[in-house]
Design a protein around this nucleic acid. Structure first.
Lengths: 190, 190, 190, 190
DNA sequence: GATGAATGAGTGTTCATTCAT
DNA sequence: CATGAATGAACACTCATTCAT
């Protein structure tokens, strides 16, 4: 028999991301994705159960990749501010080098498919980061507020600024990123 | 008094928002919107050029409404911090009282249709607010950074926190909102 | 606006029957039926809710037509044997003159769609006939057995004999039909 | 002993019948049948030319089995009425004990595949039975009518009454079966 | 102005079958 | 012999839009 072709799965993965970025979530039909990947629509169903599975799997794969990129650079022995600054740069670096991935996540998170993701499982990937913030609160370094509020100031502005769709006419410099982190830190520090 | 025509247009406006909120952007077809508004699909094309026009117009109308709500409460004679705090609360108040509108804007902003909006025209609505921030910078009260970065800390967290879809398991209290504004102000103040 | 075209509905009705007879139930796809009727597949959905509705409605329409044909000729004042002989001939006449209709009913009754029919409503059409048999039992003219068993001998052989698919190489004559009724009567009479 | 091959073929035979009974003729796809039989879809094509061959062969195998069951009990030395009564009971017994087989035949006979069966070959299986009826006619015991008409009263009602789909709300008793045979005999006897 | 009818183009998905191993 | 991968063609159905009245 023919062996399963990892190239095909990778092609579908890339095609999904490319198409969602190029023409949007709604317009990204199964047949267009298959055509972009150079396979038959029917072949897609060899690798994924259905469209939902294709999109959700793609999202989770990226999310895992992102978490690994961030956590790989994390040095728990540093001061909390430094850890978070490193994370901030890691995120920026990841987003810059994988803009397509990032944009896909953005689109996905705002699509109805996002409701189908096992949120808890995904949050597991980022537990070490959550722990750092918890430690910061306990050590009276970070304001003692819910982690969603912290995230709103620490991670969400990054998304906003890195998103060319929302921030079209404005190109970020390295200094802007430094400044932005200072602002984020000012917001959350005690 | 309203003419019959205006009533139909208003019905289409409300139907669009209701449907997008109830069944999502993707599922909101022209015929369903027309049915919800109690008119024929063909009639819709009397008032709007096409589906794109319907959605974009609806978005811009809401955006204008929001800007008016915010600016109506703005008292330029107050200290800058107080102005922005009032704005912050205005936004929260608007979102709370017009959740349907807000959710529609969210959906719209993350759809491919958002690329079709004349962004500059929309930004005009918020010029007085931009001016306040500009004044804050000149008076060395606010950090001298690009207005997009300021917005990333001043307005974007509000959206994020107000979004029940992203912040499902976490209910905001009045104190949370106060705290969040303090954090936002810490981020942008010099 | 365009007015609804009864010709189109009739064309769909006829096309459904023709196709089911020609290529079978399974192969009769919506697009083929639409093409046979000379309309777009989408148009079919103007007249019927879905494929199921198309098939079930077609069946019920025919069943009603058949019942009217049979009952129109029924004269309750005749002796029971004569009534049933008339019915027997009515059925034969109907089947002969509307072979396509009859074959469709056969196909339908043996398809999974038949489960969707409101059987009681359809049986209503034939109540006068059921009553005759009931009367025959009370007057000790007909064997006192369940009406399903009576039907098995009175109506089912007609179906079998009239069905060219089951009875291909054998052509029925007028005498055969007389003979067959005698046999049916022998079976059910006391 | 059975070779490995025969086991696979038998598995496919049983899987075909089971699936057609469980999910219907239309839904019984080749891949589902193969999966039910525990083999690859491709393997199915080692044993059968194609789907048509699979279904037709399965039907013919059952038909042969049925004929053997009926004829095994047939004692040509008995009076004709007794022979036919025995056959009648044999059929009922077979259907009761092999409901799955019977239901498959039903489904098959009303599918377009039934046109592909070599009807003459199948009729060969039942020649001894045909001969009995022929003898009955010659001995002036049975009405001298075409064998199709005889079959319409002798065998077709059995199918109808045994069919749980058509006779849903009505459960046959042993007495009903006796009665029904009496009726069948009344119909065909001179 | 207002409408229901009409439709070509598209949707996600499954099918029977063949291919390469 | 046996297989999972691969696919073109088809499926039922919905879409945004236009037509004729």
């Amino acid at each position: 028999m023919r062996t399963k072709d990892d190239e095909k799965k990778e092609a579908l993965f890339q095609a999904t991301i490319k198409l969602v970025n190029d023409i949007g979530f709604v317009a990204s039909s199964v047949s267009k994705i298959a055509k972009e990947a150079g396979v038959s629509p029917a072949t897609l169903y060899v690798y994924y159960k259905n469209k939902e599975d294709l999109l959700v799997s793609t999202y989770i794969d990226i999310k895992l990749d992102l978490s690994q990129a961030i956590l790989a650079d994390m040095d728990d022995s540093l001061p909390i501010r430094d850890i978070l600054e490193n994370v901030w740069h890691s995120i920026f670096s990841y987003v810059s080098n994988n803009l397509e991935y990032y944009k896909f996540m953005e689109q996905f998170a705002n699509s109805p498919y996002s409701a189908l993701v096992d949120r808890q499982a995904v949050e597991q990937y980022f537990v070490p980061l959550t722990n750092v913030m918890q430690r910061g609160i306990e050590q009276k370094i970070i304001k003692p507020v819910d982690r969603h509020i912290l995230a709103a100031f620490l991670f969400h502005p990054v998304s906003y600024l890195a998103n060319p769709r929302l921030c079209q006419e404005f190109e970020l410099t390295e200094t802007d990123i430094e400044t932005a982190f200072t602002m984020a830190w000012d917001a959350i520090k005690l």
